[in-house]
């Protein structure tokens, strides 16, 4: 009854085809089948945000999706975000502000932050806190993360303004 299912999807721009059990969570597929261990499993019930990845451009919890549901989608993980260089300024700001301690929340946190920044403008600190309110960080107390996101928003807005 629970026959494996063949799926094909794109992860970080690379196509992948695999046969998976229907019950396999997307996060386990990414970590164990695609060997992309930058995405972390923190709670498996959608609360902590550690497993957040980008699916067809939007942030999603990869513990609340089955791998089979990802058929035909385009997924970006932290490895893709980092390698593409598209969020290099954000990664750099996280580093300079020490918005990372143990690093376990970072991949999910960065995906969420990048989603907010993609909306453009300079969100105020409460808006930043609101957007990452589903991403748990036990180490930093969040302030340095808010600092990093705010700085990138300002810099990007400045550049956008200068280019216009």
């Amino acid at each position: 009854m629970s026959a494996p299912v063949q799926i094909t999807l794109s992860i970080n721009g690379e196509p992948i085809t695999a046969t998976v059990a229907p019950r396999m969570m997307l996060v386990d597929f990414l970590r164990e089948v695609a060997a992309l261990t930058g995405t972390h499993l923190g709670c498996a019930h959608g609360v902590c945000g550690a497993c957040t990845v980008r699916l067809d451009g939007a942030s999603v919890r990869s513990c609340l999706m089955l791998a089979v549901q990802a058929e035909g989608t385009e997924i970006e993980t932290i490895e893709g975000l980092a390698d593409s260089g598209a969020e290099a300024d954000l990664l750099d700001a996280f580093h300079r502000h020490n918005a990372v301690q143990c690093g376990y929340c970072s991949s999910g946190m960065l995906v969420s932050a990048a989603e907010l920044l993609a909306q453009g403008g300079v969100p105020d600190r409460a808006t930043i806190r609101d957007h990452i309110s589903g991403n748990y960080c036990r180490c930093t107390g969040y302030q340095s993360i808010v600092d990093a996101v705010e700085e990138v928003a300002r810099t990007r807005a400045g550049k956008a303004g200068a280019g216009a």
Binding site: G46, G49, T52, L55, A58, S59, V60, R61, L64, M65, S112, E115, L116, H131, S133, G134, N135
Partner: peptide
């Protein structure tokens, strides 16, 4: 309702 990633899905 919950948080952005939940609302996306």
């Amino acid at each position: 309702v919950a948080h952005p990633a939940i609302r996306n899905r």
